[in-house]
Design a protein around this nucleic acid. Structure first.
Length: 228
DNA sequence: GACCAGGCACATC
DNA sequence: GATGTGCATGGT
């Protein structure tokens, strides 16, 4: 594997970004009408196609559940579950949504503006303590709802970059995140677009069964400073 | 009908 | 700490 990759042309992560941006253009994530809606979307999209999440969000909007965190929290879990059914895992996700709104109401008076004042590392730890918010959802919220320079790692990121020799696919979330963080400028716009571009690339070319004949990254060895 | 999708928590070893 | 499993709908 290593010898094979060594014969390929190599690019660093910044060049890969430029390459993808040039091909696909700005993705303008996150698709949400408000900070609150972005957070709800981040939870609903866990292991779920965005098209299904859109249906769930549409239901929530129609029933005025997104007008405020307090409003959403007041909805009975069973009713909430029905509304978000198209997004899949609706029973667990209904609890997760209420876990977030419960946290927000109890600790910050239901005001997202207060969360926005918190230091990134502290906020990250607080979000990760909420049952149902793992590292990817947490970092998506930090990046897309609160504009913090945090790189979001998802299954696509691991799949694509492990195929190009950057790390093994079973590397930990933190390890992969560190690779990107240490090899890119700490820039909210770049982190925002990079993650979205990876998703775009994956949807176009990189399903679970590799079929990358037309992939823009075909034949490239990707090099980066490693992390300890 | 099989496979996949912008994960996470929990049980078990 | 690593590994396996349940959670579920909708598109291809």
């Amino acid at each position: 594997m290593r010898n094979f990759l060594n014969n390929r042309p190599s690019e660093n992560l910044t060049k890969i970004y430029s390459r993808l941006y040039k091909i696909y253009g700005p993705q303008r994530w996150w698709p949400g009408r408000s900070r609150f809606e972005i957070i709800i979307g981040a939870i609903l999209t866990q292991n779920t196609a965005w098209t299904n999440v859109e249906k769930a969000i549409k239901n929530l909007r129609f029933h005025s559940c997104l007008s405020s965190p307090a409003k959403l929290h007041s909805i009975h879990a069973d009713k909430l579950s029905v509304l978000i059914r198209p997004a899949g895992y609706h029973n667990v996700k209904a609890k997760r949504l209420k876990n977030f709104t419960g946290f927000l109401l109890k600790s910050y008076g239901g005001k997202l503006a207060k969360l926005a004042e918190i230091d990134t590392a502290v906020l990250r730890n607080e979000l990760l303590e909420i049952n149902g918010i793992g590292p990817e959802t947490c970092d998506s919220i930090l990046l897309y709802a609160f504009n913090r320079p945090v790189f979001v790692v998802d299954a696509y990121t691991k799949r694509i970059f492990s195929r190009h020799g950057l790390f093994s696919e079973d590397s930990s979330y933190e390890y992969v995140q560190n690779i990107f963080t240490r090899n890119l400028p700490s820039d909210v716009v770049i982190f925002n677009e990079y993650h979205a571009l990876i998703v775009k690339l994956a949807k176009e070319h990189c399903k679970k069964s590799p079929k990358c004949e037309t992939c823009p990254l075909k034949g490239l060895k990707i090099v980066a400073k490693t992390v300890s």
